Simulated assay, not measured.
Amino acid sequence: MANASNANHQHRTHDKVTETGRYRDADGQSVELVAGQTFPPCPKTGESTVWHHA
């Protein structure tokens, strides 16, 4: 069974990335991010978004 708290953890544009990995936004766009970077706006719309670890 997956850990529900990890599955539902959200990151917003401009938050600091704490764990290197692939993230998917609310629009379905996927990016690879490295710990220490900041979460970008949506690559498709350029707007602030919510990211989830993919």
Rank of each mutant, 00 (worst) to 15 (best):
P43I: 15
G21V: 01
A7S: 03
A2E: 13
F39E: 04
E47T: 15
T13L: 08
Q29E: 11
G21T: 00
P41M: 06
H11K: 04
T45S: 15
V34P: 01
H9D: 03
P41Q: 10
H52W: 11
E19P: 00
K16Y: 01
H52K: 09
G46F: 12
N8G: 04
W51I: 10
G28W: 05
N3G: 12
P40A: 10
Y23P: 05
L33G: 05
Q29Y: 11
V17C: 05
H52Q: 07
A35T: 01
A35G: 03
A2D: 11
R22M: 05
H11Y: 13
A2L: 09
Y23L: 07
K44N: 09
T49V: 15
P40E: 12
Q29D: 11
D15V: 02
V50P: 14
P40I: 14
A2Q: 12
K16A: 02
V34N: 06
Q10C: 05
G36M: 14
G28P: 07
N3I: 06
E47V: 09
V17Y: 03
T18F: 00
W51L: 08
Q10F: 00
K16Q: 03
W51G: 14
K44G: 06
A7E: 05
G36Q: 08
V17T: 07
G28Q: 12
P43D: 14
H14E: 14
